[in-house]
Design a protein around this nucleic acid. Structure first.
Length: 643
DNA sequence: CTAGGGTTAG
């Protein structure tokens, strides 16, 4: 553009034919140059253009423009609320609504669907119920768009009772209402209900569409019910005719066959379609992750390599595929490659990366990824799954201070049972039993329901901190207060707790009075306690049980021989070692990892191949001398060298 | 005056 001055009228005309954000920015620049950037007749179309363009930077731009307007009208408010409702920060939509009411501008039937969408994105029941009240107060409770949005909100929150209530009490219903509920049931984990509800829908002759079939196939996927899936496949064909070009429906179909384990069928359906672009990527991603879940990670990788286009979802599927196979280094490496290609990982990808870091103990990578993608100022910092993966990563990498630091700064409404499970188990492993119990109480105050995992973490915390009475009380309360029946792991924790505290007889009685037969893990917990307290008789009982249960597990022989060595029964120790030789068992070598300057250092017992092996040995020697000088007695004399 | 609700895969 030259220095030609453009009038308000011509700029407005230009805007109507404007196609890209770049063009709109140029027009905006012109309004500034011309000093007419406060003209509401220009600002309104500019703001709505940016607001509707689905890009974070454009949204930011429209927010700036919006803030310059003294009295925005309802249309502008609706445009901004809509734009924020599908942004990374949907809570802005609610602030906008508040300031809208404050400036005495009142909502219409277009306002509520976006507000409700924002509540759904925020997963906030509290705010959602408030907005529901406003819907009623303003008399929009029979607007079909508002009602369907309301139903969707309750579905997303997993509150199917209220979703059904809205449906039942609604004077108007359409196919979208039915589809919302059918899909809601699936997403909330009630796939059977979704199929049943579809039956009711057919009973009153409501004709399904593509959306309906996608939801039904998703139900069959989650149930891994291929028989019903095939019926849905046929019905879709009967109702819709050829749908090979419907990308979403084809994906749902491919995914259904893949999840049910019919991988050849999935691939055949995929090939039979004429889908392209994003849909092909999605369909191959479904197949890829099915192979990964099946444990065929190499096949998954081959598909990944052969895919022409790949998006973040495909990369994440492959990253999780590696993690699933225990190949965490490959998983992390792939994430870094994704970054190097300049792709923007989303929250699910970052969660996958953090979990690989957690498994590797890769603190430096974990911290880098945290700061880059999930820092406080980052909009994704609002994602609950992401938050708990970060906390979990720090806790598992031994940086409990960082984990606590982040945890303490999380708003209550973002806290979940998962998050508490992560931090409580982190505290448990760091021997901070009291803090674990404190956080458990805090969790109750917030109204979060503890689950089985919470209690494993808590009992483990008590065990590691010698809190015998607290542990017993918590164990008792599981069934009586929380309605969770203790499983084998919980009994194991209790045996460990009692054993560590030296209550060996009590631990043994506990095992004998358990409602099910103790497994080897539990006997091993007892055996390990016997080792600490030198109870040979009980150790023999425990060993006998373990030997009877696990003929091919190397670990117990080592444990038993260690124990016998410790209590000076070298003859028996020798016989155990002989048993190992006879069966030909080798304990899988124990690895340990540490990440230094971004590189992973692996160590194996007795391994001297590290380039810095000499310096490391000197340092270790130095540390152990330091420990001895403050009175620490090494337990390493108990360990037999099996090599 | 303008605009709107429900879909897959990690």
């Amino acid at each position: 553009m030259t220095n030609l001055l453009l009038s308000n009228q011509s700029l407005k005309a230009l805007l109507t034919s404007c196609k890209t954000i770049h063009q709109a920015l140029q027009i905006h620049a012109q309004t500034v140059v011309n000093g007419i950037h406060h003209d509401p007749f220009l600002l309104t179309p500019l703001i709505s253009f940016f607001a509707f363009s689905n890009s974070p930077t454009a949204l930011h731009h429209s927010s700036l423009l919006f803030s310059q307007i003294n009295t925005p009208d309802l249309f502008l408010y609706n445009a901004m609320i809509k734009a924020h409702s599908h942004s990374h920060a949907p809570h802005h939509a609610l602030s906008l609504y508040k300031s809208m009411l404050a400036s005495e501008t009142y909502p219409d039937s277009f306002t509520f669907p976006y507000l409700l969408k924002s509540c759904a994105r925020l997963m906030s029941l509290k705010i959602g119920v408030q907005v529901h009240c406003h819907v009623t107060k303003n008399g929009f409770e029979s607007d079909i768009f508002v009602l369907n949005s309301l139903m969707n909100l309750y579905c997303v929150l997993g509150d199917m009772q209220n979703a059904c209530k809205v449906f039942d009490e609604s004077p108007v219903r359409d196919l979208v209402s039915f589809n919302t509920l059918i899909n809601g049931f699936v997403q909330a984990g009630f796939a059977r209900c979704s199929l049943q509800f579809f039956g009711e829908m057919r009973g009153i002759c409501v004709q399904p569409d593509g959306y309906t079939f996608v939801a039904l196939l998703s139900a069959c996927s989650s149930l891994e019910d291929c028989e019903t899936g095939k019926k849905v496949h046929c019905l879709a064909y009967k109702k819709l005719g050829y749908f090979g070009s419907n990308g979403l429906l084809m994906n749902a179909l491919v995914d259904m066959y893949a999840k049910c384990g019919y991988l050849e069928m999935a691939e055949r359906v995929l090939m039979s379609g004429v889908i392209g672009g994003k849909s092909v990527v999605a369909a191959w991603t479904s197949v890829l992750s099915a192979y990964a879940r099946r444990g065929e990670v190499e096949v998954a990788r081959r598909i990944f390599d052969q895919m022409g286009d790949r998006d973040v979802v495909s990369w994440t599927a492959m990253i999780n595929g590696y993690s699933c196979a225990g190949q965490f280094e490959e998983a992390l490496e792939l994430f870094v490659q994704l970054e190097d290609l300049g792709m923007e990982p989303d929250e699910v990808a970052v969660v996958a990366a953090q979990s690989a870091c957690a498994q590797l103990g890769a603190l430096e990578s974990g911290r880098r990824i945290h700061h880059k993608y999930a820092g406080e100022n980052w909009p994704r910092g609002q994602n609950r799954e992401l938050i708990s993966s970060v906390v979990d990563m720090y806790a598992k990498c031994g940086s409990i201070d960082s984990a606590l630091d982040i945890f303490c700064n999380i708003s209550d409404y973002l806290k979940t049972t998962f998050l508490y499970n992560s931090i409580i188990s982190g505290l448990a492993h760091h021997g901070l039993g009291e803090s674990a119990i404190t956080l458990f109480k805090e969790m109750e105050i917030l109204g979060l329901r503890p689950d089985e995992v919470t209690f494993v973490a808590l009992l483990c915390a008590c065990g590691h901190s010698g809190l015998v009475d607290d542990g017993k009380k918590l164990f008792e309360s599981m069934l009586t207060v929380y309605g969770i029946s203790p499983q084998m792991e919980h009994y194991g924790c209790m045996v460990d707790l009692l054993g560590r505290a030296g209550c060996l007889d009590e631990a043994y009685t506990f095992i004998l009075t358990m409602p099910f037969k103790a497994n080897a893990v539990i006997w091993r917990a007892l055996l390990s306690a016997c080792k600490i307290y030198g109870d040979v008789e009980l150790a023999k009982i425990a060993s006998k049980e373990i030997l009877a249960m696990e003929r091919d597990h190397g670990g117990r022989y080592v444990m038993l021989s260690n124990m016998l060595a410790h209590i000076d029964q070298h003859d028996e120790a020798a016989s155990v070692r002989k048993a190992i030789d006879n069966v030909g068992i080798l304990k899988p070598p124990g690895w340990s990892y540490i990440e230094m300057n971004g590189a992973l250092q692996k160590f194996l017992a007795g391994d001297k191949s590290h380039p810095e092996a000499k310096a490391i040995e000197l340092m270790l020697w130095d540390i152990s001398m330091g420990l001895k000088s403050i009175g620490h007695v090494s337990a390493s004399k108990m360990v037999f060298d099996l090599d």
